[in-house]
Design a protein around this nucleic acid. Structure first.
Lengths: 335, 335
DNA sequence: TTGTACGCGTTATCAG
DNA sequence: CTGATAACGCGTACAA
């Protein structure tokens, strides 16, 4: 046996006094091969004795498959993302593939993020809510991994790629229609100021369009981070308190809800609140929060279907589907 | 070039009319090698033209390194875990290694979970709060990946392995001392009924020990899931409402807080609440919740230090450190 | 500065 | 049922 490193297949073979090929056969776990019980026993003993584990890279090199599905997402704190992670895990659980989650953060350059993510050797890629615009994303994917099966999932996509999208614009339209129907006029859009979503994207655009259509002035409020302090600053320095806030996410809405309480405002009466995502916590806020619920379960299931097809049949064409979110009205905006 | 599949290094070489070795050299990005500008240009052009990407498995096979750090954790929904993910990502960001997060769920058998996680070829493993007992875990690690650098992080560990632990027992002791000092006597321990933590572990044990020492009867309350419905059932069917609840996690405490409100009880006055983990949301509850805060940042930083040492110097001995959590007292238990 | 040749640890295809 | 042997795609001495 080699002195220093990990034992190899041939170390096992030597120890067991048989050929390397046979070791492979035993360890392959295939049922269509027949192996004598004694040989099998010898191999297993040697494996145990030597603490042998197959080298995954070598195996992948031979088979051309790693058995991994890459999930690309921003690992920054977000309850919605955490929920998607949970769901994706459930979907993959019944499979013989393994989920490998990789950080793709908008803070780094897209290219830098990608080259990192691509260091994980996967059979297919799911890119979730990578907020780099869909097109930039598609171009980078072409550049960096043209042959790898790929599906983007969530709010952003490119028509050049397969995707399962969520029509947040429809969600924003519905939310705004609802908000306006309650008679409120001074409605602001609230989002993290360091994010793209504050000045563009389906939610922002839906808000602006609805306000314009109603002949009302728009007001964009940016919040630096989702800390109570920054939220308080944002909410007090933006002028007179708006009658309603369309929040970019439920995380934003929940933080706003807390700060409004501190400021002596009553959510639902003094200020209406609508969030996006549909995370569980909106239900458990002091005043339950209206939200545009994302179809997380369907989204994950369908995405996996798409990707699986691409992995199994490399010639699969583009698969594209847009899902509709669902407005869930609660006390924060009812009256 | 081969017909069907991805282009290889030698396809690039052929296209550029040079040797495969030179292609490798150009793409290695090393500065100590000297390559003529024309050659470099030819290679780059061929790479672009053919859409060549190096095969990671082959590269890993050669170098013996994948550049990946495996983070093993349960991907089920939990705000604390999400926070750890966020922090770990920050720690690894300044590194040239890539984080590959893998689901290791206590619901599956430990062995099954492990063999899955081990399908990701990594240079080192961080196992976070894998609630399988530390010893079981260590044994499985020995069985499945004896040579791979390994550090466990969080509430569970084995003395046979390197770890960065958090002394939740000390946290529980402190929390109970605090709770008892407020004069409350009917104190219950609240945890998910399907989890190990309901009948064992540092938090449970600390609770039981403190109650016994105070000559008070213990009361364990199990909650099926963290839905308001299940929580309501747990809290109403456990007999007369306890004066205080030591909650297994902040997620549990927050859910309890919501349900108590619904039941007309005032948190902090009628029922005291203490949670574990120190997630941000405890601060933003209607009545801010006392919590045993985990040293997430230090924990992640130190764990990485340990792992890095093992990766760099394979002969590194056992590295073990236990961190103390910090009791943060808020209104939910003050008076 | 570039090319040749070998080996990393597997799986898979042949004979035997 | 088992043993040689040929790839898989790449990095790197060594030679030119």
């Amino acid at each position: 046996m080699k002195s220093g490193g990990r034992p190899t297949r041939d170390d096992v073979a030597e120890y067991a006094q048989i050929s390397g090929a046979t070791v492979s056969r035993v360890l392959s776990g295939r049922t269509d091969l027949s192996i004598s019980p004694e040989t099998r026993a010898k191999v297993m003993e040697a494996v145990e004795k030597l603490g042998y584990r197959p080298n995954l890279s070598a195996r992948a090199l031979m088979t051309g498959k790693t058995g991994l599905v890459g999930l690309w997402m921003c690992l920054g704190y977000s309850r919605y993302r955490s929920q998607v992670l949970d769901q994706m895990r459930n979907v993959l659980a019944s499979t013989d593939l393994t989920l490998a989650v990789t950080d793709v953060d908008e803070d780094y350059s897209v290219h830098h993020s990608f080259s990192r993510a691509l260091r994980v050797p996967v059979d297919g890629i799911i890119a979730f809510d990578t907020s780099a615009s869909g097109e930039t994303f598609a171009r980078n994917h072409d550049l960096l991994a043209p042959m790898t099966p790929f599906v983007s999932m969530g709010a952003y996509w490119s028509e050049a790629k397969s995707y399962v999208g969520v029509d947040l614009r429809a969600g924003a339209d519905e939310a705004m229609a609802h908000l306006l129907s309650t008679g409120r006029k001074r409605i602001a859009y609230l989002a993290p100021s360091n994010s793209d979503t504050i000045s563009s994207g389906a939610r922002h655009d839906g808000y602006v369009a609805a306000m314009r259509a109603a002949g009302l002035p728009t007001q964009i409020v940016g919040v630096k981070t989702l800390s109570p302090d920054d939220m308080r600053r944002a909410l007090t320095e933006c002028g007179p308190m708006p009658e309603a806030l369309l929040c970019m996410s439920d995380d934003v809405a929940l933080c706003a809800s807390f700060v409004l309480g501190q400021l002596g405002k009553q959510v639902g009466r003094d200020v209406a609140l609508v969030g996006f995502d549909g995370i569980q916590e909106t239900e458990m806020a002091p005043c339950p929060i209206t939200t545009v619920e994302q179809p997380v379960a369907d989204m994950c299931r369908l995405t996996w279907q798409f990707l699986q097809a691409q992995i199994e049949f490399p010639n699969t064409g583009l698969q594209q589907k847009v899902l509709k979110p669902k407005l869930v009205i609660r006390d924060s905006s009812r009256s």
